Amino acid sequence: MELGNYVEAEELLNTLRNLNDYNYLIRAAKWNDYKGNLDDTIRLMEKAMELAEESGSENLMLWSYSNIADYYGHHGDLALSYKYYLKTLELDPQNDYALKGISWIAYSNDDDTALATQIINKLQSRHHIPDYNLILSEYASYQNDEKKALELRESFLKETNKPAYRGMYNTYRIENLLAGTEAQQKSGLELAIIEVENRATPETYDLLGYAYLVNKMPVIALENHKQFVQNKTFEPVAQLHLAQIFKENKLVDVAQPIKNELLEARYELGPVTYKEVEQI
């Protein structure tokens, strides 16, 4: 799936089919998430979580609680999402994934940017990885501190340009280059082309099409998204880019139904990105 080999992935998954097998269930959940079947994803993860609890394995319970908390959040069940992040922390009080999830709830749902920032600052003090600067940049932007937001984005781009990272942050680099200067936007397009060559998935093609749009090539962006993105991924950001591309090509009537669906995705997108939805 990570390489975009979806036919092969489905065939392999079908050979493993066993609704009483934990490893099958978590892979089937991931597959259904990719297909946009979030209800089925949660049903499969709930079954996997039951098996994890029956096994008594702390590692399996940790993985199950933290991941189902994420899926509940995508589904809009924030009380359940919060509950299972807390259950994760009961087993592992230092769990970064759960703390990051709670930070997002504080920011995107509770409008408590101070708490959200405090959590990320704490995580960053323990593990200085570039991701946290991006999150803090978004929080700063939400608070209208564009100077700080820009500084944090530039810090991320500088750090992740080091050879040691070997392209592992390319997706995030593309997004942030496209939000920068004209020269950075061109670099973002060049990197998006390389990323598709390395890993051709609907998500990488989405970034490529969006890069064409930002670089004032809306017709090429439209051709790209029609062929490689539309009906192939249901991630909200990809849907946002699709709607923006339709609008830029004067296909407002086609963009409107996508916008209507995205208006229900404020929590998942976050309030900063949600403003882009409102502008479609």
Rank of each mutant, 00 (worst) to 15 (best):
I102R: 02
D39P: 10
G36M: 05
G101V: 02
L213Q: 05
K122C: 09
A192I: 03
Q185R: 11
L60M: 09
A238S: 14
I68R: 01
H225A: 07
L213H: 03
M45F: 10
L222Q: 09
K162E: 15
Y85E: 00
T117K: 11
Y205I: 04
E151L: 09
M168D: 13
N215F: 03
E50V: 14
G180L: 03
L207T: 07
L263P: 00
K275E: 12
R43I: 11
L25V: 01
A140F: 02
D206W: 08
N67K: 09
L115W: 11
S66E: 08
E197T: 10
F156C: 02
P163C: 03
A238Q: 00
L152E: 06
K250T: 10
L269F: 05
A9D: 08
S57Y: 02
E278D: 07
N170A: 12
Y82S: 14
Q230K: 15
V272I: 07
L44R: 07
L115P: 06
A183R: 12
A9M: 04
V252H: 09
E53S: 08
R17A: 10
D112R: 08
L115K: 15
K87Y: 04
A114Y: 13
D92G: 06
A238F: 00
Y210G: 08
Y142K: 15
A243R: 01
D145Y: 05
Y169K: 03
S108K: 10
N59M: 11
N133S: 11
F234M: 04
L16V: 05
M217V: 10
S64R: 07
E8S: 12
T41Q: 06
L38S: 02
A183Q: 15
Y34W: 14
D253F: 11
E197V: 02
Y97R: 12
Y6R: 08
E90C: 09
E11F: 11
P202T: 00
P163E: 01
V229H: 02
G4M: 00
N5I: 08
S187G: 11
L262N: 04
A255K: 06
E195S: 13
K216D: 14
Y82C: 12
L115H: 10
T201R: 03
M217N: 15
E53R: 12
